[in-house]
Design a protein around this nucleic acid. Structure first.
Lengths: 218, 218
DNA sequence: TAAATAGTGTCTCTCAGACACTATGTC
DNA sequence: GACATAGTGTCTGAGAGACACTATTTA
């Protein structure tokens, strides 16, 4: 042995420290045009009921990759970019043993979920996520809260909409996130600094055609 | 065996999953009246240089307890309330093996650090933390950033000061956190909704005595 | 009295909120 | 034309920022 002291001042080699299992759990949020902000839930394999998709971390794997993998395996959804929310570390939170869970949030366009397993998944309004195991109800609440903060100042920062959209579509998305109606004119003025007009206008709907905007790259 | 499927849809029992070591690292921030916002660093036991205090998580231990333990053992500091910042999960971040680190931030009154080991610790301005190993420089930057956001609206939410303080002391603390001078009158009016006047005034200093305030419990 | 600091009145500028008007499409 | 929606002018009230004045202490 070269060294005799270790990172915590103790004398045990790294391999002798007991190690927790590490899981990831993800609140995948998207926008249902009719229902509003919804969260993806999957059937629990071992018990009745529904839960957020999650998995154990594999050896040498990044947390974000474990999130991607769990969504692929459990819901047939791919190619997303999760953000960390919080670590849940209550040693007794999982009766199968010592399991830390890193909660994530993932916000996606509804199209991304069109390929999801029809039977094994469901989309539920974030306000009424149903009975969820572990800390999943808290994860959903925190995810919705996190989203509301992010959407207050910027136009659709998590790309619930596509690259181009009308101010009406943008406002409806923000209203779904905020959970309340927003003033049409104030909203426009608040968002305009973060938008770039394309000069193109929509057609076909009722009323005057609206211009399409992009997010400002900043 | 009762069950044959597991949380990730695989068929292995929980004990067969490879597990990472989990560490905590903490940015302890405090206020030096002369220097400003400073961070606590400890001597690295195995190599040259300084690092943030940290330790490996013990079996069944809460993250916050591991933070407390590491500060006690490495710096002789106790009784604090850490907040989680972020998990660092690069599999190659630690050359001793697969180690996840949960970064924490801890903000304390300078008195709490008076008992710290004189030789094995130092307090360094957050803007110039020196050469730090692992992701510690990023942790310090994020901690300072986090603190700035928290201090924008509320009067000293993390109790860098005691229970009672003058508006001058409060403003100097907020200026140290913000890294810039703040307008005296605007600052007072911005903070007053979060304060309760005690009716007691200080004496002994130069100039007109100032009233002492407490934080509003809300 | 001079200097230093505390506390407050007030002006201005900006901006959110609200209302209302004009513009331009479909039915 | 009736209706629906887009886009914008404008009024108002709240609040941040800035300046200046008064108040109260020490040296």
């Amino acid at each position: 042995m070269e060294r005799k002291t270790y990172r915590d001042g103790g004398s045990r080699p790294l391999t002798e420290y007991p190690r927790p299992s590490v899981a990831v759990d993800t609140a995948v949020l998207t926008l249902d045009p009719d229902v509003g902000l919804v969260v993806l839930e999957v059937r629990r394999p071992t018990r009745r009921g529904w839960a957020l998709p999650g998995t154990f971390l594999h050896e040498g794997e990044r947390l974000a990759d474990a999130v991607d993998r769990s969504l692929h395996v459990k819901a047939n959804v791919r190619g997303l970019r999760p953000r960390q929310l919080q670590v849940f570390d209550d040693p007794s939170r999982d009766d199968r043993g010592w399991v830390l869970s890193v909660a994530h949030i993932e916000v996606v366009h509804a199209d991304r979920l069109s390929s999801r397993f029809a039977d094994a998944t469901r989309l539920v309004p974030v306000g009424t996520p149903g009975r969820l195991p572990y800390d999943h109800a808290e994860i959903v609440a925190r995810a919705a809260d996190d989203l509301r903060r992010r959407y207050r100042d910027q136009p659709d920062p998590d790309r619930l909409l596509g690259d181009e959209f009308t101010l009406r579509a943008l406002r409806l998305a923000h209203e779904a996130v905020a959970g309340q109606a927003l003033q049409r004119d104030s909203f426009r003025r608040a968002m305009e600094p973060g938008l770039v007009a394309t000069g193109v206008t929509t057609a076909g709907g009722r009323g005057r055609p609206a211009e399409l905007f992009r997010r400002r790259v900043s």
